[in-house]
């Protein structure tokens, strides 16, 4: 089961109720949190992504199991561009070169985002779990930190640098510009 901060049961409800309920539920989420919407209305497959786009939330994906659709959305209301602080940055192209030389791609997006599409071989540690899972990382290895747009990876890179990691690079702009294959784990 994919991790979500809030689950919404909209099973058995027909249009427009799944969206009406999703909208309400989203209001109670904090920015960056994941909402799972369980629905049986097939129309939700087209409408939830379109609604998300119209209001600026990130629609992550949908998985179907026993006739139930599990949609994953990430709340995005704060679109302010924050200046990237971590100084060591690399581009997607440079990152690709580095993979062959033993570097690690560290994907700090939420589990659901990772599940619906990540770079093959990337290690998943969501931003919120980084502090408690740092010992899984090797200080001698080059670490390329990636997220969707470079914002969370910047924070993660700063955190790692403070903890004494020196070979940490923020991949910019992030998964939004990744043109290669995506691996799914759903």
């Amino acid at each position: 089961m994919i991790k979500a901060d809030v689950r919404l049961d909209a099973k058995g409800l027909s249009c427009p109720m799944p969206i009406v309920k999703t909208k309400k539920a989203m209001n109670n989420l904090v920015d960056g949190q994941i909402l799972e919407v369980q629905a049986t209305d097939k129309g939700s497959k087209a409408d939830l992504p379109a609604w998300s786009e119209s209001v600026g939330h990130q629609y992550i994906g949908v998985a179907e199991e026993n006739g139930v659709l599990f949609h994953y959305l990430r709340k995005c209301s704060d679109d302010t561009v924050v200046e990237k602080i971590h100084e060591q940055i690399i581009s997607i192209e440079e990152m690709e070169k580095g993979i062959g030389n033993g570097a690690l791609i560290l994907d700090v997006r939420e589990e659901a985002e990772y599940a619906f599409g990540h770079i093959d071989g990337a290690k998943s540690i969501p931003m919120g779990e980084l502090a408690s899972r740092m010992e899984e990382l090797n200080k001698d290895q080059d670490i390329y930190v990636i997220c969707r747009t470079g914002k969370r990876s910047d924070l993660a890179a700063q955190k790692l640098a403070k903890a004494g990691f020196t070979k940490v690079y923020n991949v910019l702009p992030g998964m939004t510009d990744w043109q290669g294959d995506l691996t799914k784990s759903i």
Partner: peptide, 10 residues
Amino acid sequence: YLNIPYFELL
């Protein structure tokens, strides 16, 4: 015709 998705009219 006018096409406005219902979810933009909530």
